[in-house]
Computed example of a mutant assay.
Amino acid sequence: MNARTEPAPAGSDAIARPSLVRELLLVAGLFLVYKLGRQLATGHTGEALRNAHRVWNLERAVRLPGEGTVQSLLLHGDGLVHIANSYYAAVHFPATAAFLVWLYLRRPAHYVWARRVLAAVTGAALVLHLLFPLAPPRMLAETGLVDTARVYGPSVYGAPATDSLSNQFAAMPSLHFGWALMVAVGLIVATRSRWRWLWLLHPLLTLLVIVGTANHYWLDAIVATGLLGLALAAILPPGFVRGTPISLRSPHRTATTARRAQGRLVPVRAQARAEERVPAGAGR
């Protein structure tokens, strides 16, 4: 999955690179607000479990595949489930941070766009966490699912009653999946490699991991996808004009095509100016 790093054509990243200090302060501030918001949503154990029953029953009513199908594949060997737990624990934040750093250094305009989209999705997710606390499937006995992180390790969560660092009743929407999908979409839009569509493997693997480890329901990923879709519709990437069909073609290629078309117009304009300078009757 090679994100080619040719210099961006003129006009594709016209926005100057934002101040690094300002960006660091902004990201840190947003992170603190989010963590504080998640803490406000803690302590709703009864409501979170009731909502978990509702989500589980809704998934069965609409005949979504059982989360246990994915988990059974992971439980074929201790090594595979350990890898899945490690992916859940170690990839989420570093992958998103690396994505933003790369955009900041190589595609400043796309960085500003991606940061705004991620902030919008995360803010909307926080509101849903407050309004709809949801226990993950690993806490719901009727699912029959194993808490793979607790049994096989590694785990990023402590006991819900004593875990003061995270809100374990914030399953919907899944920011693990929402952020992973945005990383893939952002790299597809901002790069021009023919292999860039392989970045979709990241959200696909993330989806299998969050479901197979019993940390999320299918509906958590579906709601995250919907929120991201709304954010992408409202916050367009550089080079895309509202009212025109939105494509995931690279804006760099679009800019190159525009320059070639402009180059074809130059000889025509030059010929027209030459004809204007010819005296009337000179060709007779």
Rank of each mutant, 00 (worst) to 15 (best):
Ser166His: 14
Met139Asn: 04
Thr191Phe: 03
Trp199Met: 07
Ser166Gln: 14
Arg150Leu: 15
Val211His: 07
Gly158Asn: 12
Gly158Met: 13
Tyr152Met: 14
Val189Asn: 07
Tyr217Arg: 01
Glu142Pro: 07
Phe132Gln: 04
His202Val: 13
Ala180Glu: 02
Leu165Pro: 00
Ala149Ser: 15
Leu198Ala: 15
Leu205Ile: 13
Val183Gly: 04
Ala170Cys: 11
Pro203Leu: 10
Asn167Ser: 09
Pro173Asp: 07
Val183Phe: 06
Thr162His: 07
Trp218Cys: 00
Val127Leu: 14
Leu208Gly: 05
Phe177Lys: 08
Leu207Arg: 02
Gly153Asn: 09
Leu187Ser: 10
Ala180Ser: 11
Pro173Tyr: 01
Leu187Glu: 05
Val151Gly: 13
Gly144Ser: 10
Met172Arg: 02
Tyr157Leu: 14
Met139Asp: 10
Thr206Trp: 01
Gly178Lys: 01
Pro154Val: 14
His202Arg: 00
Gly144Lys: 09
Ala184Glu: 09
Thr213Ser: 04
Leu207Met: 14
Leu198Lys: 09
Leu131Ala: 13
Val211Asn: 05
Pro154Met: 12
Leu131Gln: 07
Phe177Gln: 08
Val156Ser: 11
Asn167Pro: 08
Gly212Leu: 02
His129Tyr: 15
His202Asn: 12
Ala170Gln: 05
Val209Met: 04
Ala135Asn: 03
Val209Ser: 00
Thr162Val: 10
Thr206Ser: 05
Ala141Trp: 14
His129Phe: 15
Val127Ser: 00
His202Cys: 01
Val209Glu: 02
